[in-house]
Design a binder for these strands. Structure first.
Length: 584
RNA sequence: GGUCCCGUAGCUCAACUGGAUAGAGCACUCGCCUUCUAAGCGAGAUGUUGCAGGUUCAAGUCCUGCCGGGACCGCCA
């Protein structure tokens, strides 16, 4: 439980006591009471809206009620100051001893500081990337990959039992195209000259090793046979190779998902028949004719009876087709089967991370999930907007035609994994963002990755110097968590501790909102407070961390530094970014 | 035409799910290096939160309608 929750409970308790003492009427809605950090630090350490949300039902003026609550609040040991402000905010300040206790918590818990039981171990499935297995990952996949992965880590930290998952779309027509592309390269490997890759096949060089491997394994066995003979074999082989590429690319980003589910395996196992029966039993499948989309006139539109899912019963705008005109199932149908599979594996909460181009798919998928689970499962879909790659302020074209920077691997090679991860998480995922390749590798205030990493490196630098001066080999030997922190009392130091103490709450609010980008802003703020304190040591030598003539002060300061480094590392861990100990 | 996302300082973006005087960074001006990493710090200016209504003690946040940008719109995935 974070410290704001603790004080919220304290206030609820004392309001209940006031009700018992008949200072307040019964039947008040105490759930609306909250305790937050005030927007302006000058307002104190904590603030509560209790008086304002209770005033109306209590039949009292908010400020007068605030004064009464404040009187009770002031009796708590940890509360030093209480003020009433504005329309009835109760602002209060906590004792230095309390903040020292927070710092001790950081040192005791280490990277685990901020772990929460908010999720109470509930199972959540986070599915992300799920790119077609037809080639290496493209830069366009980066944001979804990083967002999904950070979201999963964030939810884990917040106490959910998270499974990360990749859905392999290996049952559609595009994997047949992949197989044909492989066959072309297979012929090439056997000596045939390929002048140009025909339209409709995948032209990338990455298909050449696939063809070569098939030639080496099977010789000319498939060379003069019809497509029907080799298609399935080539498809299976190529998909496996492509997934190897994908996994390698993901690993380059520090991502290793727990489960890879094959669409084809699901289909082969009868999952689609199964889901169709489930929907039919609920009376949600019928054959009907859809209206053409309004305002648009598709050239080849003709009214046609289709097998439809009653998506409109669950909030979608139109009913959605389950069967193609050739009798095979649509992607949507298979995807419903997949979500039913996830549900049956025990996931009542699922999160899908999609690209913005799948926005039109959200309603139907949520509708379907509600339908198959009888409302028991909840699906959240996070849409990731486009990232505009820039260089020197100029937009970069990412199309395959222009030939530059198409793969995720290229991007990682250019700026590094940690930079890609951090920068992708500095913006809310459903807003478009710019990614300037120049800026993100600069070592300046303008580059948040550097700025945060530098704060951590500075902490490590101080600790290294201190160990030398104190003639100690290992930081653990100093037993920092059991020393006195009495020397930590400068306002800038306490501000730093307050910021650290806010981390557990931030984890919870970010997890609830499913918005990992908030961690980036938090880390930036923490780094700012640290850099600021560092520089105060220039104006005021007493604020420097190491004092050779004062061991007790030095140790207390080292404890502060160490806890800052730990909280930064704890935050970076949510992003899957390694904290660096040195910048060179 | 419909659905979804977005619209906040000159620029890039926050705003803890309805709270106080809407905040950071960049850019601009001015200070700070015999110092634990100046790769940094401090000070200063900037707003009709796209527009118009509504809901209430309180709206950037919720509701309605417009305006502007983006994504998508039966048998691709």
């Amino acid at each position: 439980m974070n410290l704001f929750e603790i004080f919220r409970e304290n206030i609820v308790t004392l309001v209940n006591e006031m009700i018992e003492a008949q200072e307040l009427p019964e039947g008040l809605q105490l759930g609306r009471i909250n305790v937050e950090p005030p927007r302006d630090a000058a307002h104190g350490d904590l603030t509560t809206n209790a008086a304002m949300v209770l005033a109306k039902a209590a039949g009292q003026n908010p400020r007068q009620l605030a004064a009464k609550i404040a009187d009770h609040l002031a009796l708590l040991d940890t509360v030093e100051t209480v003020d009433i402000a504005g329309p009835g905010f109760i602002n209060f300040g906590l004792s230095i001893a309390f903040w020292h206790g927070q710092m001790r918590d950081v040192l005791e818990q280490g990277i685990a500081f901020g772990d929460s039981d908010l999720g109470r171990g509930r199972k959540v499935n986070v599915e992300y990337v799920s790119a077609n297995p037809t080639g290496p990952l493209h830069v366009a996949h980066a944001r979804g990959a990083v967002t999904g992965d950070a979201l999963a880590r964030l939810l884990k930290k917040a106490g959910y039992e998270v499974t990360t998952e990749y859905y392999i779309n290996d049952a559609g027509s595009q994997v047949d195209t992949l197989a044909r592309s492989a066959h072309l390269r297979y012929r090439e490997a056997l000596g045939e000259t390929i002048h140009a890759v025909p339209d409709g096949l995948y032209p990338g060089d990455y298909m050449m090793p696939v063809g070569k491997a098939l030639a080496e394994r099977d010789g000319d066995k498939w060379l003069h046979r019809g497509e029907a003979d080799w298609l399935a074999e080539f498809r299976t082989f190529s998909v496996a190779r492509m997934m190897d590429l994908v996994r390698e690319d993901l690993k380059g980003l520090g991502i290793e998902q727990d489960v890879f589910t094959s669409e084809k395996s699901l289909v082969d196992a009868g999952a689609v028949d199964d889901v169709l029966k489930t929907l039919e039993d609920k009376g949600l499948v019928y054959v009907g004719v859809l209206e053409p989309p309004k305002g648009m006139k598709p050239d080849d539109w003709e009214p046609r009876p289709q097998t439809l899912f009653k998506a409109t019963e669950f909030g979608d705008d139109v009913d959605r087709p389950l069967k193609k005109s050739d009798g095979s199932w649509t992607y949507f149908t298979n995807d419903i089967a997949y979500h039913l599979d996830k549900y049956r594996r025990g996931f009542n909460e699922m999160i899908d991370v999609f690209g913005a181009d799948h926005g039109g798919y959200v309603k139907r998928m949520k509708a379907a999930t509600t339908a198959i689970s009888g409302g028991d499962a909840e699906l959240e879909i996070k849409l990731c907007q486009m990232v505009h790659l820039m260089k020197d302020g100029e937009p970069m074209r990412m199309s395959k035609r222009s030939g530059n920077f198409v793969t995720l691997r290229d991007l990682i090679d250019e700026v590094g994994k940690d930079v890609v991860r951090f920068i992708m998480l500095t913006r809310k995922s459903d807003t478009q963002m710019e990614f300037d390749l120049q800026k993100v590798t600069e070592q300046s205030r303008d580059n948040p990755v550097f700025y945060v990493q530098y704060a951590h490196a500075r902490c490590c630098s101080v600790l290294r110097n201190a160990l030398e001066i104190l003639s100690v080999d290992h930081i653990g030997d100093l037993d920092l968590k059991n020393i006195s922190f009495a020397a930590i009392k400068d306002p800038a130091e306490l501000e730093l501790i307050r910021t650290m103490a806010n981390w557990p709450r931030l984890v919870e609010t970010a997890a609830q909102a499913q918005e990992p980008h908030r961690v980036a802003y938090y880390l930036n703020e923490l780094a700012t407070h640290f850099h600021s304190l560092w520089n105060k040591g220039k104006d005021d030598a007493r604020l420097r961390f190491i004092h050779e003539d004062d061991r007790e002060l030095t140790l207390a300061r080292l404890a502060l530094i160490q806890s800052v480094a730990l909280v930064i590392a704890s935050g970076l861990a949510v992003f899957g970014v390694n904290p660096v100990e040195e910048l060179r």
